[in-house]
């Protein structure tokens, strides 16, 4: 907090998070996005949604493992940017890539598992985004809020699966995201482990 008063870092973090979107606007206006700019925009927005999602999930492990507590200050912002990029990703898919061709879009949602999963992840993100302000934490109560926001784990898994299912043959990129997500989830599982193991060994010794 003291550091924040000395130098306002948050606006810079905010601008940095906005950077990829600003680049896409600039690239579109100046024809820098290649032969298929719509595809580039769609892919980039999806990439950044996933990256912010994983970044948000990395903040509490970073504190626990490396003692980097400062990240907590930006966690809500990063989470909201994940939603921002995911929402733009969907908007471009609906409004530009398919130009509101609801027939095709509906068929995509019901017939293509990767679209179904991606759409599910995005819809699930909405309640998390809506309940991000502090006042909502108070309204819901800390425990319920925490429980609700645990949804980010299935959302992140769904987002990676969405990516995995859409590539044709080269799974290297989604694999990288899967490994990172795996590490972030494993850290949490590991922390939860000792207690459960104690309970487990207790019951087995009594039996």
């Amino acid at each position: 907090m003291a550091r924040q008063k000395k130098f306002p870092i948050k606006p810079f973090v905010f601008l940095a998070c906005l950077g990829p979107a600003l680049w896409l606007v600039y690239g579109t206006l100046n024809g820098l996005l290649g032969a298929n700019p719509i595809e580039t925009i769609l892919r980039d927005l999806g990439d950044w949604a996933l990256r912010f999602l994983l970044l948000g999930l990395a903040i509490s492990p970073a504190r626990r493992v490396f003692g980097w507590a400062w990240g907590m200050r930006y966690r809500r912002m990063i989470g909201l940017f994940a939603f921002f990029y995911a929402f733009l990703h969907l908007s471009i898919y609906v409004g530009v890539d398919h130009f509101f061709d609801w027939n095709t879009i509906w068929k995509d949602i019901v017939k293509r598992p990767y679209i179904t999963i991606g759409m599910g992840a995005l819809l699930t993100l909405i309640p998390l985004a809506v309940t991000s302000p502090k006042i909502m934490v108070r309204k819901l109560g800390g425990a319920r809020w925490k429980k609700l926001h645990k949804l980010v784990y299935p959302i992140a898994i769904a987002a990676v699966v969405h990516f995995f299912l859409l590539v044709k043959a080269d799974v290297r990129e989604p694999l990288i995201y899967a490994v990172i997500l795996g590490i972030l989830l494993a850290e949490r599982a590991y922390r939860a482990l000792p207690q459960a193991m104690l309970r487990g060994s207790g019951s087995s010794s009594s039996g």
Partner: peptide, 19 residues
């Protein structure tokens, strides 16, 4: 006949906005 993961009913001609 759709590809299992996307529709083949329309296409984007590179350089065009609408499919």
């Amino acid at each position: 006949v759709d590809h299992p993961r996307w529709s083949q009913a329309k296409e984007r001609r590179i350089g065009q906005f609408f499919r």
